[in-house]
Computed example of a mutant assay.
Amino acid sequence: MKTKLTSAQEFVQRLDAVDAQAPMDDAQIKATLREAGVAPGELVAQARAHIKSIRKSLAADRLANAEAARRAEEERLLNSAKKYVHFSLEEIRGKLRQLAAKLGNERMAVAHKNLTSGSSREELEELLAEYEHLEAEHTNGKD
């Protein structure tokens, strides 16, 4: 006794049969799809929409991961800056100068511009936290 095939199974069998034949051109492929009850244009549109949906989802995931990483780094820097609350402004500037001299690279030279008397305490604390982060990278060989 032979079981009746579903339309999906029949479609797969037809595709297998077509695969076994010689290569087909676009017109033959479209005709075969139509014979199987599939509208080629709709199939392509559905495939494109699905691909677009997957890409959008992946982009949203990457964006969410980047945002989480940015927030974590921001939190790390802010927490690091809080440890300088007991420092005077001159002590912070002195520590910054020490680190800049110790590391002596271009990143420090650029950041060194922020040591002016016009910098706020918060800016100096954040800069010191960043300098110490760069020092740690330098010490760990990531420079």
Rank of each mutant, 00 (worst) to 15 (best):
Q21L: 14
A101Y: 14
M1Y: 10
G104W: 01
R121V: 14
V110H: 12
G94C: 05
Q46F: 06
A59L: 08
L89T: 07
E122N: 05
A136N: 07
Y84N: 12
R76T: 06
A45T: 03
K113W: 09
E67N: 05
H133A: 14
N79I: 08
A39S: 09
L128A: 03
E42Y: 13
L96G: 04
E67F: 02
K2D: 04
A129G: 06
K113D: 11
A66D: 02
D61P: 01
Q9Y: 11
L99Q: 09
L5V: 04
S88N: 02
G104M: 05
Q13P: 08
P40E: 09
G118S: 11
E75T: 15
N114F: 06
E35N: 12
G104Y: 05
G41R: 01
I29H: 04
H86G: 04
T3R: 10
S120T: 05
R107S: 15
L127G: 07
K142I: 11
A100Y: 08
K113V: 09
R34N: 02
Y131C: 04
E122F: 13
A49M: 14
Y131D: 14
E75I: 07
K113H: 08
I92L: 10
E123N: 09
T139N: 03
A39K: 13
L33C: 09
R93K: 10
H138W: 10
L124S: 03
T3D: 05
L115G: 02
G104K: 06
S57T: 01
A31H: 03
A64F: 00
A22I: 12
K56P: 03
A39L: 07
Q28H: 15
A60F: 00
K102S: 04
A36W: 13
S53L: 10
H112G: 08
R71Q: 14
A129F: 06
K95A: 02
A136C: 08
A111T: 01
E42Q: 08
A68K: 02
T3V: 07
R55Q: 00
S120M: 11
N65W: 00
K56W: 03
E35K: 11
Q13E: 01
